[in-house]
Computed example of a mutant assay.
Amino acid sequence: MGYGRADITDPGRAVTLPRVLGGKIDKRLRGSTSSRVVWPRLSRRQGMVLGGGLAGLLVIALLVWALWPEPEAEPRPREYTDATACLLTDADGVAGAGAAPVWAGMQQASRETSGQVRYLAVGGEQTVENARTFVGTLILGRCTVIVAAPGIADGAVRAVAGDHLNQQFMVVDGDAPEGPNVVLVGVGEVAATLRDRLSTQN
């Protein structure tokens, strides 16, 4: 077996390729860098079994999708109107003995009309003079109706109501004189009275 040589000392001479196996390239070397994937052939029975299995999986997937429980809808936030009833209380807030039933009646009126209710407790000195500044805060807060709980709150309303005739006031079991913008009610009348006042603002 001989191999051709290239004389690298003479640049004008061509390089002779090696003669492999008598000058012929072994056919076994052809395409040695490529590969083919041969898939196994399935018999008819195997094809039917495979197809049936795939169909069964598809049916199961459809059943799971159809029977999967839908996610619970998130509760929608309650929508309120612009009407607002504001309760003024002493330092005990809505937990006080006089304010608690008033606040309960206001909440009932809110549920029935979608009007808003909130409260403000008088801080600092528990005097009518100090409570007047808190009435002013509620007036600036654009409350539709300012409700005075029994005690210093109704005294404060009595002192300022005449200077704010465009503001509605409601005094519960108090001593404030009834006027064009002040209504006197009992505790049991809070819900019904506020329901009418808040409904007219919708």
Rank of each mutant, 00 (worst) to 15 (best):
N202G: 07
R19D: 15
L50G: 08
T89S: 02
R5M: 12
R118L: 10
R36V: 15
W68G: 00
F134M: 06
Q46R: 10
A191S: 13
S34H: 13
G186L: 08
K27Y: 02
S32V: 15
K27T: 09
G96I: 02
Q107E: 15
G162V: 02
S199H: 03
R195I: 05
G123N: 10
L29I: 04
V20R: 13
A156Q: 02
L17W: 12
M48V: 13
G12V: 08
G123M: 07
A121T: 03
Q201I: 08
L17H: 14
I8G: 02
V182K: 06
G56D: 00
S32K: 15
L88T: 05
R111M: 12
M1C: 10
A176E: 03
A192L: 03
L50P: 06
R13V: 13
P40E: 14
L194Q: 01
V145R: 02
D7R: 11
I8F: 15
G52L: 08
V64W: 09
A61Q: 09
W65E: 10
R132P: 01
T133D: 12
L198H: 00
G179H: 04
A66D: 10
R5P: 06
P150A: 14
G31A: 01
A148K: 09
V171P: 01
A91T: 06
V117Y: 05
K24N: 07
T193W: 04
N130G: 08
R13I: 12
E70P: 08
G22N: 09
G124Q: 04
P40W: 04
A14V: 12
S32P: 02
F134C: 04
C86R: 01
R158H: 03
A95P: 00
I139Y: 00
L42T: 06
V171Q: 06
Q201N: 06
L184D: 07
R19T: 15
V122P: 03
H164Y: 14
M1P: 08
A91F: 11
T193K: 05
D10Y: 07
Q201T: 13
P11I: 03
Y119C: 01
L63M: 13
V64R: 07
V117R: 04
N166P: 05
N166W: 05
R30K: 10
G98C: 03
R76W: 05
L67C: 03
L58A: 15
L17D: 14
L138Y: 06
D175E: 14
R78D: 05
E112Y: 01
L63T: 09
E70H: 10
D163F: 12
G162S: 03
G2P: 13
L62G: 08
R41M: 11
Q126T: 13
V122N: 04
P18K: 15
A83F: 07
A109R: 03
A131N: 02
P69E: 04
T9L: 11
I25W: 08
P75M: 02
D175K: 15
V128Q: 14
A153F: 06
D26R: 11
M170A: 05
I146T: 00
E74A: 12
V102E: 00
